[in-house]
Design a binder for these strands. Structure first.
Lengths: 202, 202
DNA sequence: TAGATTGTTAATCGATTAACAATC
DNA sequence: TAGATTGTTAATCGATTAACAATC
């Protein structure tokens, strides 16, 4: 799991190198820019395959693509976003996710004042229609940008119609069957960690 | 560091227990709701002090307060937020941070179209004025909600006027002197991890 | 007092780093 | 071929779990 959390970072740095037209890189060079030890980089990559070549290093483009595949970025994902507040809109508006293959197909909100409003190309739909939409549109991922209250109930509904993954921004640990993947983004926990580390500095 | 990342979660669960007027809890009971082993909970807490009592367990309120202190939540922090787009506005509008002692004192943006607009109680200020504002308002934390481009330059400016902590939402690893604390929130890395784990399930 | 539960030590497990033979 | 650098094994380090004496 520690390795997995590093994979997106490898992917990002390799993408940067690709943008700079750099074609090969050694674990030592990558270590200098990414900050992990060269040994760890070689170990990490070798968990998934022998992508390098002795005496040469790694081909940047090939490695970028391999890591993309490992991360599951070689396919497209259909997503819906529930909770069209500021945070939800920020995520819906961010073009980077679509470029990476994650397409938000609809926005939902429970607030009658929000329903019908247009955000980018999307009209905000009624949360009551989530189940039907998921069934009819092959939705893989639900992005939950709602408050803590009601989050577990919503998760239950999503699970019931066969959602495979939940990207959860609500500050609660959702209980779902083990085959459903939940990835949490907890901003409060992140901020509190910052606060702890700032204290340590004194 | 592994322990530190768990502290905010202890804090959150203890807050929930407090809301339910639960006064005492054993490591075993906490284990059942939080999902860490009872042994790990006792180890974690003992890193910071003997907060429990044999035969009784832990006093929920006392432990909540102790962990709050450890996290540095027993004081107030002044923050500014740079980049008043959707994400920036979402963070500025979230009342939970203020309740925890993190007060956003001003919003900044580099886009002339944004400058002068009102978000909640705040008028969006010109990014050029960041340095003066930090100096005159005892700002501890800068929240960076800007794109990758320009993020390092902004960080340099913040460091130059003595910022102590940066909560960074830009998808880049900032280089700062070691006494400056950076906490990153990288949404793309989180999403890619979800995608990886969904693939694993197949 | 007896029962419960911590604090803490020891054992285990997993992750990181070091080292180097293999090989391009 | 010689030099460079990987893949991989072994050593180290740190984190988690188990066990139990201390004690409320």
């Amino acid at each position: 799991m520690a390795v997995i959390r590093r994979l997106p970072k490898y992917h990002r740095y390799l993408g940067d190198l690709l943008d700079k037209d750099i074609q090969r890189i050694s674990s030592k060079e990558l270590s200098d820019i990414i900050g992990f030890t060269a040994s760890q980089i070689r170990q990490d990559l070798n968990n998934f395959g022998g992508f390098g070549q002795q005496g040469y290093g790694y081909n940047v483009e090939a490695l970028f693509n391999e890591i993309g595949k490992i991360l599951g970025l070689d396919r497209e994902y259909n997503a819906i976003l529930i909770g069209a507040g500021n945070l939800g809109q920020a995520i819906a508006n961010y073009s980077g996710f679509r470029k990476a293959g994650f397409e938000i197909k609809a926005l939902f909100d429970a607030n009658p004042k929000m329903i019908g409003l247009k955000i980018r190309e999307f009209e905000i739909l009624d949360s009551d229609d989530i189940e039907n939409f998921i069934k009819n549109n092959k939705i893989d991922i639900a992005i939950m940008c709602i408050p803590k209250n009601g989050a577990q109930e919503l998760a239950n509904r999503l699970v019931n119609v066969g959602i495979k993954g939940i990207w959860n921004f609500a500050p609660i640990d959702l209980e779902v069957p083990q085959q459903v993947i939940v990835e949490n983004v907890n901003l409060t926990e992140s901020l509190f960690t910052l606060s702890y580390l700032m204290k340590e500095e004194q």
